[in-house]
Design a protein around this nucleic acid. Sequence first.
RNA 1: GGGCGAUUAGCUCAGUUGGUUAGAGCACCUGCCUUACAAGCAGGGGGUCGGGAGUUCGAGUCUCUCAUCGCCCACCA
Length: 855
Amino acid sequence: MLNKKYNHLEVEENKYDFWKDNGYFESGDKSKEPFTIVIPPPNVTGKLHLGHAWDTTLQDIIIRYKRMCGYDALWLPGMDHAGIATQAKVDEKLKSLGLKPREMDREDWLNHAWSWKEDYAETIRKQWAKLGLSLDYSKERFTLDEGLSNAVKHVFVTLYNEGLIYRGERIINWDPEAMTALSNEEVIYKDVEGAFYHLKYIIDGTNDYLEVATTRPETLFGDTAVAVNPEDERYKHLIGKKVVLPLVNKKIPIIADEHADPSFGTGVVKITPAHDPNDFEVGNRHNLERIIVMNKDATMNHNAGIYEGLDRFVCREKMLEDLKKQDLLIKIEKITHSVGHSERTNVMVEPYLSKQWFVKMDELSKAVLDNQKNKDTKVNFIPERFEKILNHWMEDCHDWCISRQLWWGHRIPAWYKGDEIYVGVNPPTGDGWVQDSDVLDTWFSSALWPFSTLGWPEKTELFDRYYPTSVLVTGYDIIFFWVCRMVFQGLKFTGKRPFKNVLIHGLVRDNQGRKMSKSLGNGIDPMDVIEEYGADSLRYFLTTSSAPGMDLRFDMEKVKSTWNFINKLWNASRYVMMNLEDFDLNNYSIVDLKEIDKWILTNLNITIKNVTKHMDNYDFNLAGSEIYNFTWNYFCDWYIELSKVRMNDTTKSVLIYTLNSILKMLHPFMPYVTEEIYQNMPMHEDSIMISNYPIYNDDFEYDVTYTENLIEMIKAFRNVKTENNIKNPILIYNEDLNEFINDSKDILEKLLKLNGETLIKSQSFKDDDITIIPLTLSFGNVEIAFKKDVNKDEELEKLNKEKENLEKSIQKREKLLSNENYVSKAPKTVVDKDRNQLEIEKLKLSDIIKQIKSL
RNA sequence: GGGCGAUUAGCUCAGUUGGUUAGAGCACCUGCCUUACAAGCAGGGGGUCGGGAGUUCGAGUCUCUCAUCGCCCACCA
């Protein structure tokens, strides 16, 4: 028997271990069809936030649902080493211990990092457990595992041998804090207050000058030309001449290049090939020298002359003073412009010439675009609109910089000896080879996640059975740097899409609609919510409060109202169990049904049908409200109340059957409480999570008119009673409802608090000092009689308003039904409904008119 | 510059291929401690679905347009 009070802390204790220890989370039943999800691996940099809770709960709902539907459901857990993010955190920790991470031995540092990883992995597993996620831990993976590392090497070497990975000097985004290259996707552009510094570049041999505007004057030490547009009449005559580089006093050429936009600024642009991607291209076209002027920590190098050693921003201030002294600074124009910042360290990135490894993208991305045109093999996005992000990114993508000057990650499988280079899965033989010290971008290994976790490139049973995976669940914010990469690597290396479907969700926001962030301090720890309201409440809230692909505003009140719903379910279950205490299970039968049983079973059946459809479409909000509505408004409000009057063994059987079905449909959303109640039911298997999901059954569609009529009468009666503030109403019925009332007497007396004196036939009613209100029902008429004590004016006002509404509605409907176009074109069922409704409304109107007259 | 989303009750949000008088939760009003549940029960009020035009017998839903808010991508010497 259940405790008197629902206590989420008690209910959620120990159940996770029970499931896990019994192996219910593990996949591998070969007699079933496989269904696979691989978890988007969380970074081992910290705790899970509400976004993770949402993302993983969606997956758990899908996997629990599919498991109950008879699939061999594999949900593969794992974590991501998260290169730069983790390295930054580990460094921070080491610094706080007084150590200097960059001066440590690489192996020592890695030992620290691994122990950090173990700590955080354990924290994350505990949080997964709190959330109730049915992950198959026997197959857990980590991106730096041996197997996954082999996959990474295999992919690198293969792409290298095919010419799709190359090493080259390019302008990359340089993070001077982490001192590593970044990919374009790791750079976040933010609007900052800056300035255009307008400088004089004296034209050689004249007193005249070109006005050049720059936002980064410190790069002028690397200028090797100034460019003007070849069509720009203002400067045509100067092309081929030289200017004197300020402060450096070096002569550099004036060149003509399309890059210079005559309509922007002065139309003259300084060319710094080693510090700007556009200038790099210009430099290539004109064969210009590339002069690097900064060190890796963004201090100036020897090319900056007297400014050598200064930080770039200090140097800027210093040289501006000097330029001013030499009258070479025309003006400083304050502007707001967007500047790239490192996603991880948040410092301004420097475009920087550097030798890095790149993935050549055109061939790989074209394969994705081609595949998306094939409806049988494409990756399907839910909602569909997100496919555009994939396509858009694939249509316009630059080569991918994959080398990182970090220690935490997959070491690049390339070795150098003098000018020789060797790339291979295994180290080269012979002496003198030195391995590339860089590691690969984290996303390089994440891109392989759906198949590397299943044992690829080895031929494994796991891979053969579970790949391609069924669905990937992730937020729209990482479609373009993760989902895209998994798709192109999946197609390239397995020949198949890595997942059939991608279910996209939005971001969790705070109750004011702001993004949750550390700086705002508005983050909410899911573990705190679980403590207060339970994982079941949190899960149901997260997965039913928004439509697919939309953002979610976190609202504690809604979590609380979910708790109330669970409490309602809990109490309804207690009612069912109380009535089963003396029930002999041998008498269980749902064959010889009473009217009310047919009604609830029919509605249950419809609910199952709708819920199944919504679950299959990933419309969890719709599925959730369908179950909520059935549970509260059908089962609790009506069937349980009716059962109090008509309790017998069939009723008890139907109570068991219906509650069991509700529990099963709710289980994916709220695993803990449904398990608790289920285990306390007289008929159950070892666990609800391995029971069968309810199935829609055609045989359960009964004629439920009687119960619907009953409910209609009860509602109408209560309405009139309350609206008119009637203390002691009498329900009067005519001969035509004799049979119906006689069949329902017990129910009406109980639910309407009537008795033999107040539920009477019209001919036996005699009293003059009484008011009669007629009740028009869809199946007949009754009257309510009561002592006259109402406020006439109020009553009249109410009746007139009702009359007006009815007249409007009748008019509208008559007009509609007299429209031949409507009658001939609209479906017959719709038209019939209107006709019926019109008849009822007319009857009601005449009643109202009668009442108004009688007042 | 390109793309996407949002705009529905006081608040937060649903609304399936167009089809009765547009729904839920919270909040609000009235009456109830009825033996599963007062974290509850019964009843109720509240919306010209951002503006305008169009298609249609019929539009919250489809088309066009305008407005406001938000997001993504690109550019930014």
